[in-house]
């Protein structure tokens, strides 16, 4: 099967997945106790106020009717308005999601940059001091809670050494990158630990494989063996783990965004769930689902390229 057909099939599979997610989120968020109006107003909500405002929002309609109206507006590109923030959900997604994507991409890159070379070193120095120290260091990164690690980085590199700003997002793209470095590093540490361990194991497995011994026997240059044969084959399983980790990174972003005061999608999502801001929860879930699906798709393509048997 050619790659284009493989892609088309995967894209088609995406549609029912997204519809299913939409239905589940739409129903689940309404099954939570409480409603947006009394959640915002709390003590001060008079019954009459809650009824009036919920009627204005159309929340007094049967759930089927609400869903039908929602689906209709989704297909016209309208995700509704935030009940709490009184802004179109599409505007909120456009404001917040790029921040989280940037944070996630930076974290992923930092994780790769740290994990890949060190995995090689660890694998080639198997059971020696270098291997043990690398694995030990990453173990610390993996076992440290994100909010704690973030706070330590902020205190040391932000407040004390003043190399980086103490949280916030800054103005302009370069300033964003500067502000996002510490939060990305926070997120990257645990991911890189997982990637490094996995890649190290995979490299060791490949190094022991017969075709590598054969390559050596044929007299291929060791560097060529490492890049063309070992790395490519070892990466297959790591790419899968990497793709799956993007979802984890996105959920880790929630805590990181709070600690580092970054106005990202994670914080908006959590606030919206607490505030029962149904349209935002629905819209953001849809956007995140698309994002994760696209990541998986890219992972599949990468895998297909690394290992042509996958697409077959």
């Amino acid at each position: 099967m050619p790659l284009s057909e493989f892609l088309a099939r995967r894209l088609l599979q995406l549609i029912p997945t997204l519809i299913f997610i939409l239905i589940v989120v739409f129903v689940l968020v309404r099954l939570l106790p409480g409603d947006p109006t009394s959640a915002i107003l709390g003590d001060r909500a008079l019954d009459a106020d809650v009824e009036r405002i919920n009627r204005q929002l159309g929340l007094d309609q049967p759930i089927i009717v609400q869903f039908w109206l929602f689906v209709k507006s989704v297909f016209s590109g309208d995700l509704g308005n935030s009940i709490v923030l009184k802004l179109p959900v599409t505007t909120l997604i456009a404001q917040r999601l790029p921040t989280t994507i940037l944070l996630t991409v930076m974290a992923a890159l930092i994780a790769l940059i740290m994990a890949v070379p060190l995995a090689f070193v660890a694998a080639l120095q198997r059971e020696k001091l270098a291997d043990a120290s690398i694995r030990g260091a990453f173990q610390v990164g993996l076992s440290m809670p994100v909010f704690y690690l973030g706070l330590i980085l902020l205190t040391v590199f932000g407040a004390r050494l003043q190399w980086f700003p103490v949280g916030g997002y800054g103005d302009g793209f370069l300033d964003h990158l500067y502000h996002l470095f510490l939060p990305s590093l926070t997120l990257a540490l645990s991911l890189s630990a997982i990637l490094m361990r996995n890649l190290r194991a995979a490299i060791i497995g490949v190094l022991d494989a017969e075709y590598v011994s054969f390559a050596h026997a044929k007299g291929l240059a060791p560097r060529l063996i490492l890049t063309r044969h070992v790395l490519r084959n070892a990466l297959i399983s790591t790419v899968t783990i990497f793709g799956l980790s993007i979802g984890t990174l996105l959920s880790g972003a929630v805590i990181t965004e709070t600690v580092f005061a970054i106005p990202g999608a994670g914080r908006l999502m959590v606030d919206s769930i607490y505030g029962r801001d149904y349209p935002v929860v629905q819209g953001m879930t849809l956007a995140l689902a698309v994002l994760v699906s696209v990541t998986f798709l890219l992972t599949d393509i990468l895998q297909a390229w690394l290992d042509p048997r996958v697409a077959r």
Partner: peptide
């Protein structure tokens, strides 16, 4: 907007 108490204080101190 700095939701985390510790970060808010850290930014003030810095």
């Amino acid at each position: 907007v700095i939701p985390d108490d510790a970060t808010r204080i850290l930014r003030l101190q810095s």
